[in-house]
Design a protein around this nucleic acid. Sequence first.
DNA 1: GTCTATAGGTGGATAGAC
DNA 2: GTCTATCCACCTATAGAC
Lengths: 210, 210
Amino acid sequence: MSGPDAPSAREQILDAAEALFARKGLDATTIKDIGAAAGQNPALLYYYFGSKEELYRAVLQRVLSDMAARGGAAVDSAPAPADAIRAVVAAQMEFVLGHPNAPRLLVRELIDHEAREAEALLLQSAATLFERLCGVIAAGQRDGSFRGDLEPRFAAISTIAQVVYFTIARPAIGLFLRAGARGVPEATAKQFARHAGDFAVGALSTAETT
Amino acid sequence: MSGPDAPSAREQILDAAEALFARKGLDATTIKDIGAAAGQNPALLYYYFGSKEELYRAVLQRVLSDMAARGGAAVDSAPAPADAIRAVVAAQMEFVLGHPNAPRLLVRELIDHEAREAEALLLQSAATLFERLCGVIAAGQRDGSFRGDLEPRFAAISTIAQVVYFTIARPAIGLFLRAGARGVPEATAKQFARHAGDFAVGALSTAETT
DNA sequence: GTCTATAGGTGGATAGAC
DNA sequence: GTCTATCCACCTATAGAC
């Protein structure tokens, strides 16, 4: 009946809530904020989602499954471990630039609720992604291209930390890099992503790179 | 008159506010929460700090100057660039384990206010620390112990990202490492800090590390 | 499915006694 | 300096008309 191209009231609420939860947090975002941003009646939120918290969980679920889908492709994209590492880091930055809400939302969830709301979602999406990244590192260690004295799980954490930190700390990094008053330009973010791939591969490799 | 050893009402409010702002955030923490946690009358907050926001800024200021003081010592602690890098990473983890409130508080500030409240404080403390870390990396590049093809500022970001990310993502990392239901033990955090020093030095060095 | 109106509760901040 | 009492604004959620 109503085509899937015309965004339903439900989807408009979901989109508006995602943006507001990311920018202001669950607590500081009011039902009326969401209604106004969605161009819908605030009371509709209760009709579709039951409560503000259930809406929040719906938002988290959508972001996490999106992230897992994109991340999975990157791990498989290259046969050589070093190239796969670079691909994962590049995909991370691409995802984050395309979904600026995602990192804010997830970091808030980690700090505000210690991942309680997202625990089940993390285990069925991000955790398998993490395991596969660890697998790539272990494979590199077996074929001799990576140093054997690093713990693969720790190395995976160090690898993905770079882009996440860059994104979260972007206002501070803007100050550090003395890049004007308003944040870090996207071009710099892309340069950093290339650097982060090199940095991780350099840390993992037995010989110097390039 | 009243000795500096007996914590004043003002200090008790400051301590309680720091813990609550770190755990629940500025918005979700109420004046009455702070008063109860401090064992003081909530109205005293206005007598000493004028408003909740001014109290928040006072908390941020104390944490940031503490962090800058500890970080400064680490940069100077070793003559060789590689050792200085390791010292900085180790100091980061020590600071964070001793002040669990600090990273939460700062990350919240970055996400909630894009560092607006902390901008002046960051520029007079963290920024100079960051510059000095960049200086250590550049020195290593000049003396030939570090690769010359990495941008020092980016390398500094990658280096400090590790411990920060590990700390913030600790609930998720607990799930990834399958370390029980309740978080990552402190021993694992210290192991990770040693790893992170190796990882950064490995990424920066021209030859493979032992 | 969408809207209005409102109940019921809580929060920041102040006035003023002591 | 510390406390009680309270004002006013705002928020979540629901009831019920359309």
